[in-house]
């Protein structure tokens, strides 16, 4: 072996020795990557909407297990009522509600509205959760069942009245998808059942389709739109489809919702089937909801 070869060999050896640690560490990282490739993991879409209601109606979201959500909603009068009523601000109706997450998939809630002195209770169950990874699911699907009881005194106490006339029911299937970090859409076929309807010709079961979406304008603010379309021959005379739009603003433990809507009531039968305002004629109400969550049962973190 001549001198030059030896030199070359030594040179190569040195370079290799130096390069070993350099690539060894990248290698270690790569090894870790390979070992922990998350192909076997399923990642579920989270926070499709900021809160459990889009505006009036339910969103696909549940409150987390063990969490109590205290919701205060206010609805003012029609803006079209003019300056004398301070564009509706003189008249406020409200709903107080408590929602609670029983499990990851099941939540329940109760509420009381000043409008028609109504009590309501509901259960919402997640059937499918949008996910990627080992289990690929393009949509989230939930079902909601609501019972409403109107405790307002009967219009005409002289006739035979039945308590059952004051009960109303609503069933919904919600299909939702979080398309991007900022855009989520949902569609919700709905049926509202009346035991007692205004006229003999009105159907007891009223079918409608709700659609809505949220568009994030910043990390903590989103724009929401919600519309409920009443299918032909599934609406009472003089009612309009419910249209609402507003903002969700998140501030730590609160979500603040500020919106405009043509609906008066804040439960399914009242806003889907009994909306009397024409949004495009200025029959718009301002409203807001404050949602405050409390962790009642702490999840185990160990």
């Amino acid at each position: 072996m001549n001198r030059r070869n030896r030199k070359t060999a030594f040179g190569i050896f040195v370079v290799m020795m130096l390069s070993v640690p350099a690539w060894a560490q990248d290698d270690l990282m790569k090894m870790l990557d390979d070992e922990t490739s998350d192909k076997n993991k399923t990642e579920y879409a989270t926070a499709t909407f900021k809160t459990t209601r889009l505006v009036n109606g339910h969103s696909i979201e549940n409150v987390a297990p063990g969490v109590l959500d205290f919701r205060i909603s206010h609805r003012f009068g029609f803006i079209s009522s003019g300056a004398y009523e301070l564009w509706g601000l003189d008249n406020a109706s409200m709903r107080l509600g408590f929602d609670y997450g029983l499990t990851k998939r099941l939540m329940i809630g109760v509420g009381r509205s000043t409008y028609q002195k109504q009590y309501d209770g509901f259960a919402k169950y997640k059937i499918l959760r949008q996910s990627t990874g080992a289990r690929n699911m393009p949509l989230s699907v939930s079902v909601v069942g609501t019972v409403m009881y109107k405790s307002l005194k009967f219009d005409d106490p002289t006739r035979t009245n039945y308590q059952s006339s004051n009960f109303y029911y609503c069933g919904q299937i919600i299909f939702a998808r979080k398309f991007t970090e900022g855009v989520s859409l949902q569609i919700a076929p709905t049926v509202v059942h009346y035991n007692f309807v205004p006229t003999a010709n009105d159907p007891n079961d009223l079918f409608s389709v709700g659609a809505g979406g949220r568009f994030k304008v910043s990390k903590r603010v989103s724009v929401n739109v919600e519309y409920y379309y009443q299918l032909p021959a599934n609406q009472f005379a003089g009612t309009y489809n419910s249209l609402s739009m507003g903002f969700d603003v998140e501030t730590g433990g609160h979500v603040f919702q500020l919106y405009m809507t043509n609906s008066t009531g804040m439960t399914e039968r009242t806003f889907i089937s009994e909306t009397t305002g024409d949004f495009f004629k200025g029959d718009i109400r301002l409203g807001f909801t404050i949602s405050r969550v409390f962790t009642i049962r702490k999840p185990r973190i160990d």
């Binding site: 270690l28 990282m29 870790l32 989270t46 969490v67 433990g253 973190i301």
Partner: peptide, 18 residues
Amino acid sequence: GEVVFAVLVKSFRFEKAL
């Protein structure tokens, strides 16, 4: 002496869901 760590941010668990 090399040491590497990797962690999925989503798998941090908090007391409060929010």
